[in-house]
Computed example of a mutant assay.
Amino acid sequence: MSDLELIILTVVLILSVVQSILGMGLLVFGTPTLLLLGLPYSSCLAYLLPASIAISLFQVKGDVKIEKNEVREFFIWSILPLFISLAIVLSLDSNFKISLAVGILMLATVVIKLSSRLEFLFAINVKNNFHLYLVCMGVVHGISNLGGSVLSVISSVKYSEKKDVRRFISFCYLWFAIIQLIVLLFFYYDKFTYISLIVPVISSLMYIVIGKSVFNNIDSRKFNKIFILFMLIYSLLLITKGIQIW
């Protein structure tokens, strides 16, 4: 096993705990981490999607079922935009400056979350244009794997209880990852290696052993502050990498 493969497994192990708690983490932080290591976007997906699917399956199975109207809205307004945008990005692959795009999207999310006024105005805007944001979420996730940044806002607008928030996030993430996996298999089936089979085992173990119990005792506000700090650091690293400062 190479040093890079060991690093990938370590990243998955750590971020599986984060996703077990918040419903997201493997894609939001895993994608920029692997991009900073020099991996192409298609390889990032091949390593992270199986792990994300494994945890989401546990969470969706364990939580209360999502309502039918929510399922309908999500599939109608988010899945097709995700499919189209991901297919376009994968067809461009090396020519598309994914690091810069991901960095800008992360920084925009941080700016909104750091300002209570901006977050309030954004939440009102989401309520008034809910279907439009579902479309945006699908597109953003397709081109960057960061649909979770939009999804977290949508979930917090719709729900007040953390279990309901995570339930909605887990459901959306599960189906996003399944569609992404299908598209990736069509374009880049050769990107899947034996590591792609190991990562879902690791993520499942992390959820069962650590994540599930931590979620029930976590201080959500403190964790969100740490989450935002990491997003800020990653966004700056990716933007500077994207414009070739280093």
Score class of each variant (00 low, 15 high):
105 L>Q: 05
156 S>F: 14
84 I>T: 06
226 I>T: 06
215 F>H: 15
4 L>R: 11
123 A>S: 15
21 I>D: 03
96 F>M: 06
152 S>P: 01
70 E>D: 14
24 M>Q: 05
129 N>W: 14
30 G>W: 02
131 H>I: 07
188 Y>S: 13
162 K>N: 10
11 V>H: 01
111 V>F: 14
25 G>D: 10
199 V>C: 01
94 S>F: 10
40 P>D: 14
175 W>L: 09
233 I>K: 02
42 S>Q: 09
98 I>F: 02
39 L>N: 05
75 F>D: 06
48 L>F: 01
200 P>A: 06
65 K>P: 08
15 L>M: 11
233 I>N: 04
201 V>D: 07
82 L>Y: 01
185 L>V: 04
63 D>L: 15
45 L>T: 03
43 S>F: 03
23 G>Y: 07
139 V>P: 00
181 L>N: 10
241 K>I: 01
227 F>G: 04
153 V>E: 09
93 D>T: 14
246 W>K: 09
67 E>W: 04
166 R>T: 13
153 V>R: 03
243 I>C: 10
123 A>Q: 11
37 L>N: 06
239 I>F: 12
30 G>Y: 04
173 Y>R: 03
16 S>T: 08
46 A>P: 07
76 I>E: 05
75 F>E: 05
15 L>T: 02
154 I>S: 01
113 K>T: 11
50 P>T: 03
142 G>I: 07
44 C>T: 10
112 I>A: 02
97 K>G: 04
24 M>V: 13
19 Q>E: 11
68 K>V: 11
165 V>F: 12
2 S>W: 08
194 Y>T: 14
237 L>D: 07
61 K>F: 15
97 K>H: 10
61 K>A: 13
222 K>C: 07
98 I>L: 06
77 W>E: 02
96 F>D: 00
19 Q>D: 03
119 E>A: 12
